[in-house]
Amino acid sequence: MRQHKLALCKEHYLEWIPEQTERFIKKYEMFTREEKILVAVSGGKDSLSLWDILVRLGYQADGLYLGLGIDGGINYSNESRRLAEKFAKENNLKLHVVDIEKEYGQPIPVMAQISHRGYGKPCAVCGLAKRHEMNRIARDLGYDVLATGHNLDDEAAVLFGNTLNWVSEYLLRQGPVLPASADGLARKVKPLCRFYEREMTAYAIARGIEYIYEECPFAEGSQSILYKETLNQLETVRPGAKLIFYLNFLEARKSGNLFIEKNMEMQKMHPCPKCGQPTSAPDFCSFCRMIEKMKAEITSSD
């Protein structure tokens, strides 16, 4: 299984990840080497690794760090900014920094309080502001593509939530690429969407990337973490489950078979010649076939 990739020696592992990333970039037609890419960098393992990989592959990738103004007793924003800036400096890369408080007068937690959005947690406001600012900077500075570090576990957790609630409008939009909109929003891509979170952690460690290990304090007890933990328990007993969940979803949507009503119409049903129940099998229904087969076996073994 895939897990065995972690058993590759360090050198090969560090080659394998960019090779696979390149394959996904091509497969999903994310971007070319002529396009300008803006990587959303949080200081975490995924976004810093993504930046590292794209640069190693020879893409034109600059970074964007958004200062959210979150302290939470662990100096979260300052520390993550320090790590993002350190990575940029050490690798001679261009990092744009936007500080929400400087730009709009208040840090995210205060903004959330004042606007009364999001039931005591700033995450709704934070997500809204992040999307808005990423789009704004990409447009104002003329980037073709906005790349984020979402990994397979992130995508599987989002899909799990959207499936539990059957939010079809989100299910129709979730994927490795969201095309540019007519009114000027940049294309959005997730080049790491097929790597396990565990694989990305291993990459960051093996590459010696210094990333922020502490969570944003507001992430504690969040739904996405609950979904990830749940899916990891499943993965432990059924290796490959997360990847199958995500890839089969992409496949089902692409083929137009995701929604059941449509599917039912397309399938031609006819009555089973033996029992009369509707079946899509060419002749007898599956049950009648099973009974026939069983009878045949019993007589042949007599």
Binding site: C123, C126, R198, M200, I205, F218, S222
Partner: peptide, 20 residues
């Protein structure tokens, strides 16, 4: 995962889950 642990080993575990 299949590494056999030896007497005196100190294994540091790094949590991989992140996100909010």
């Amino acid at each position: 995962d299949d590494e056999i642990l030896r007497d005196g080993d100190v294994v540091k575990l790094i949590a991989v889950i992140s996100g909010g």
